[in-house]
């Protein structure tokens, strides 16, 4: 399990980072989205992977705490997902506005030779 998920995180990161270094704004926005998947999964994985562990408490008694999944990384990631959405939205609009103002979708706001 761990091996597969970490391979997934690694690939998502690599694809994201490669796109971050590309010259077109659209590539960068896709890259950021891929990178945020990777980061969310990474943070989530810090609470360790548990299959079929209850995430919801039994009403009444709590009982053995070790049965449950770790709620803290989950709460963090939940926040991160929403902020990630906000970031994507903002970046998309900045991208569009920049394209409207400069006439190009290059990240520098003007075409560079050799890209």
């Amino acid at each position: 399990m761990e091996l597969i998920l970490s391979a997934g995180i690694g690939t998502l990161t690599a694809s994201g980072v490669y796109l971050l270094l590309r010259p077109r704004t659209y590539q960068v926005i896709i890259g950021l989205s891929l990178l945020s998947f990777a980061v969310n999964l990474f943070i989530f994985g810090m609470g360790r992977l548990r299959v079929n562990a209850p995430p919801i408490l039994d009403p009444g008694g709590v009982g053995d705490l070790a049965r449950y999944t770790d709620p803290v990384p989950q709460a963090l990631v939940l926040t991160a997902i929403v902020i990630g959405f906000a970031m994507t939205a903002l970046f998309l609009v900045v991208l569009l506005a920049s394209r409207g103002f400069t006439g190009t979708d290059h990240v520098d706001g003007r075409e560079q030779r050799g890209d």
Binding site: S6, G10, S15, V17, Y18, R22, F42, G45
Partner: peptide, 21 residues
């Protein structure tokens, strides 16, 4: 860029795997 990206991805994979196990 590809090497940088593979380095970053490999690093994340390594750290994630190490911590999760």
């Amino acid at each position: 860029d590809l090497l940088l990206a593979i380095g970053a991805g490999g690093g994340m994979m390594l750290i994630a795997y190490t911590v999760m196990t």
